[in-house]
């Protein structure tokens, strides 16, 4: 058997295979439920109900989707330029730290939200700048540097929460003081537990889409990602484009942490992110790196997590099923993407 490239895949192939990947994922989910001793169809039904079955469930899913939209966009933007930013988790925490530093009384009240959002983006962008400059100047693999920065950042957050940033009123828990009310993102509709961070994530997705399709920078990012040699020959400043991409990507990931702190939690703790930065990679891949697709895939992924939580309470299937579903969805999607471009032939 060998692989043979397909010059011009049909529309059916380009849309049908990802759909097939989702169906296959659901089939695996049912198999897992069966192994866990539950009724497969009931399990899927409960995941769906838990994610979308009530107003409360929908809002919870959208809340959970918010940081995933940001990290998904961060990854999609970077991967489009073939800049492998695996460090969205670290950039997320950089944004969260800034939200606390500026949101606990440092800035006069009306300006605190826009200023801390901007500062958070800058912090995330600067964090990604180092690995990218090492890449463009010295050829250091950014997968390694951005990945390792995640662990450094998590340890740094632990240090902050045990030391300088520890809440004196926190009864000894490693958490930061609470944000002042003016530094909190308000709810979109009074009484409903959904904050403006979600709206901001949607706006960000549209902005990124517009940048990618309508601006010279977007054209450069796509060109550098597709073929850096041709981009350089055509006169594009390849390294500058990579740096701009990094600033955009790091800033987006930082907004995930900023909006979690300012919108949802109101303080920083070291369990702020259950791996939103890494899940952002799955979100971006499922969306085929399309910024608008990131919205849908983030809601899908968030729904699976929220729904699995609800399902495990009633059906007794462990919530690990959500992680396994993510992993299988990603594997099937990567396979689907590969098979849109090549076919397997005998001989």
């Amino acid at each position: 058997m060998r692989l043979e490239p397909i010059a011009n895949p049909s529309t059916a192939r380009r849309l049908g295979l990802p759909a097939l990947a989702l169906v296959a994922t659901l089939a695996v989910a049912m198999l897992l439920a069966l192994i866990a001793g539950a009724n497969p169809l009931d399990t899927l039904g409960q995941i769906a109900t838990g994610a979308l079955g009530s107003k409360l469930a929908v809002l919870e899913t959208l809340n959970r989707a918010t940081p995933l939209i940001f990290t998904g966009l961060a990854v999609a933007v970077a991967f489009r330029a073939k800049l492998w930013n695996i460090g969205a988790e670290a950039q997320l925490y950089a944004g969260a730290i800034v939200a606390v530093v500026l949101g606990t009384g440092a800035i006069p009240s009306p300006l605190v939200l826009p200023l801390s959002a901007l500062a958070a983006m800058i912090a995330g962008a600067v964090l990604l700048l180092g690995p990218v400059i090492l890449k463009t100047r010295l050829g250091v693999d950014e997968v390694v540097t951005t990945l390792l920065l995640n662990f450094i950042m998590l340890l740094f957050v632990s240090y902050l929460l045990e030391g300088p940033m520890k809440d004196p009123m926190g009864m000894g828990w490693p958490k930061s003081p609470a944000l002042i009310p003016e530094a909190r993102l308000p709810r979109i509709i009074d009484g409903l537990r959904l904050h403006w961070g979600f709206a901001l994530s949607l706006i960000s997705a549209v902005v990124i889409w517009v940048i990618q399709t309508r601006t010279t920078l977007g054209f450069e990012i796509r060109a550098v990602g597709q073929n850096p040699e041709a981009a350089r020959f055509a006169g594009m400043p390849v390294n500058a484009v990579l740096i701009k991409t990094a600033l955009l990507s790091g800033g987006l990931a930082a907004l995930a942490g900023w909006s979690e702190v300012a919108g949802l939690k109101g303080h920083l703790s070291s369990d702020l992110s259950p791996g939103f930065g890494y899940t952002g990679i799955i979100v971006a891949m499922l969306a085929l790196l399309n910024p608008l697709g990131v919205i849908l895939s983030a809601i899908f992924v968030a729904g699976i997590f929220v729904g699995s939580d609800a399902m495990s309470r009633t059906a007794g299937v462990p919530t690990y099923i959500a992680d396994m579903l993510m992993a299988t969805a990603l594997l099937f999607m990567v396979l689907a993407i590969l098979l849109t471009r090549v076919r397997v032939v005998r001989g």
């Binding site: 010279t216 977007g218 054209f219 796509r222 060109a223 073929n227 981009a231 006169g235």
Partner: peptide, 27 residues
Amino acid sequence: TIADFDLTENAVLEAYRSRRFSRRGWM
């Protein structure tokens, strides 16, 4: 050329920043 870009994108690969094809960063 960039293989997966269309003819339009390849046609302006060099001159995309000229005033004919973009203004203030907008293609």
